[in-house]
Design a protein around this nucleic acid. Structure first.
Lengths: 153, 153
DNA sequence: TATTGTTATACTCTATAACTATA
DNA sequence: TATAGTTATAGAGTATAACAATA
C-alpha cells in the first residue's frame, strides 16, 4: 500500500536523492584520497589496511579482516605487500603460535601520518563549505553512524 | 610553513574527520544499494551503467564511458551483459555508422524504476535523521557538488 | 588521418574452498 | 575437532595498447 501523500512517500524520495548526492560527494573524496595514496605507492586496498593498524597495539591478521569487512584469505597478499614495503612486520604470537600479529614499523607510522594529511587535504574538495557547514556535516554523519541499526528494530 | 593555530590547521583536521565519516556513511549506503542490485541480478558496475541511461535519449557508448568516468573499452562487456539481459539494445547510428547508441528496453525501464526504489530504501540507513536534518544534508551535499572546483582557482 | 567500438591483456580486489600448522 | 593463516582459483572491475570499420 502506498503511504499517504506528503509523508512517507516524500520522505523516501528525499532519502533517495540524498543517497545519490552523498555517494557522488564520496566519489570525489575517494578519488582525491586514492590519488594521494598512489603518490605514496599504495593501492587503495593496501592503504585501507595500513590505515586500520594501530602502531601501539599489534593486531592479529584475523582481526584486520574483520575491521576491513573482508575474508581472511585476502589479508595475506595485502600484508605481503606492506611487509615488502617494510611498513608492517608479521610477528608470531608466542602465546598462540597460530596467530600472526601485525606490527607497524617506524616507516609505516610515517606513511600513516602522510595518509592523515591526505585526508586533511580533502579540504580542497569541501573547501566551498564554511566552517559552520563543515561542523554540521560532521554532526549529521555522526548521527547516521551512531544510529541503532534500523534493520534490527 | 605551518598555519597559525586555531585557523587553517584545525580547519584541515576537521575536513579530514568529515571526510573519514562521510566515506563511512557512503560505505553503508553503497552496501545497501549493492545488495538491492544483486537481487535484481545486476553487479554494481552493470547497475551504474544502466542507471546512467536515459530511456528517452539513446546515448552513444562513448558518452556512457564519459558519464561513468572510465575507459571506452570497458563499456563493451558492460553493454554485452545488459543486452543479454534484454535491458538495453545496441543500435547503429544511421548518421554515423561508427557509433552505436544504447537504447533502454521496456524491461530496462522497469529495472530502472526498481533501482530508484532501492535508493529510496536507503531511508533505512538514514532513518535516524529527522526530515529537517535530511534536508540539511541534501543542501550541504549540493553545495559541495556545485562548488567551483577548488583545484582550478 | 581521426574516431568508434572492439579485442587482447594485465593488474587489483574480493570470495570460496581446500590445505597446514597449531591448539 | 576447531582455529589462524595460507594457497589456489575464479569472477568483477578497470586500464593500456592494438585493431577493424567508418568518417
Amino acid at each position: 500500500m502506498p503511504p499517504a501523500p506528503g509523508t512517507a512517500r516524500d520522505r523516501a524520495e528525499l532519502a533517495g536523492d540524498v543517497t545519490e548526492q552523498l555517494l557522488r560527494v564520496a566519489g570525489e573524496l575517494q578519488h582525491h584520497i586514492e590519488a594521494a595514496m598512489a603518490t605514496l605507492g599504495l593501492t587503495p586496498a593496501v592503504a585501507r589496511a595500513l590505515y586500520q593498524l594501530d602502531p601501539d597495539r599489534p593486531l592479529p591478521a584475523r582481526d584486520l579482516a574483520e575491521l576491513l569487512a573482508c575474508d581472511r584469505s585476502n589479508i595475506t597478499a595485502l600484508v605481503d605487500r606492506l611487509e615488502r614495503a617494510e611498513l608492517v612486520r608479521r610477528r608470531v604470537d608466542p602465546a598462540d603460535r597460530r596467530i600472526k600479529t601485525l606490527v607497524v614499523t617506524d616507516a609505516g607510522r610515517e606513511v600513516q601520518r602522510q595518509m592523515r594529511e591526505a585526508f586533511a587535504g580533502c579540504d580542497e574538495v569541501l573547501g566551498h563549505l564554511s566552517d559552520a557547514q563543515l561542523s554540521t556535516l560532521h554532526e549529521l554523519c555522526s548521527a547516521v553512524l551512531h544510529a541503532p541499526a534500523a534493520g534490527q528494530l
